[in-house]
Amino acid sequence: MRSDQPANPSRRDFVKSTSTAGIAAGVSTQFPSTALAKSSLPDVREKAFTQQVTLTINSRKHTLGIDTRTTLLDLLREKLALTGTKKGCDHGQCGACTVLVNGTRINACLSLAVMHDSDEIRTVEGLGTPDNLHALQDGFVEHDSYQCGYCTSGQLCSAIGMLSEARKGMPSHVTPDLIIPVTLNRDEIKERMSGNLCRCGAYQNICNAIEDYAERDRETV
């Protein structure tokens, strides 16, 4: 039974317009109405809310006071000069910003820093350094698993997180049977890594490196 229209508008009421399009004078009627200007403009003279957040990044504890709007990604890149994690789209559409939060991979662009108080974050810088590469990083160099390098950090952190998920037996879209244990084959790797775009198209080499690493270094992460 359908409910009637609620007396009070839902909380997803229309948002006060933030439009920057003005009234189009002389517009021909073929265009949709741009009545956007009629709505009231937002008041941006409000000050940012600042909050303190404490998080551990690559085993180092940080306490900062930040604008609540700061994403985890921008905290890393702009406040802590940890620019290894990349901003490819800022809208969760490319995976270049993938980091590990308490061992779980997420897109850092779609998370607020204040949502991670007390969390442990691991970024690509925490995997290894040029002189002391993590086995997977070295595998990427050996297999030429990059070209421009901009998606690379995300691919690496995502792979580490993905392997952990597979070890825990988490299924994927291509897992044939939801009940029996998961076997991490090539198709599984490809599906599980599909949240990391690579426009240079280094996909085959990325998967080669991950496959290689998964076979050799199963125990260490």
Partner: peptide
């Protein structure tokens, strides 16, 4: 409820599903 599991796994990406 495997249809629910399958539907979830078909959506978004691993990173997004984790959040």
């Amino acid at each position: 409820y495997p249809v629910l599991s399958r539907a979830l796994l078909a959506g978004a990406s691993g990173q997004l599903r984790n959040k």
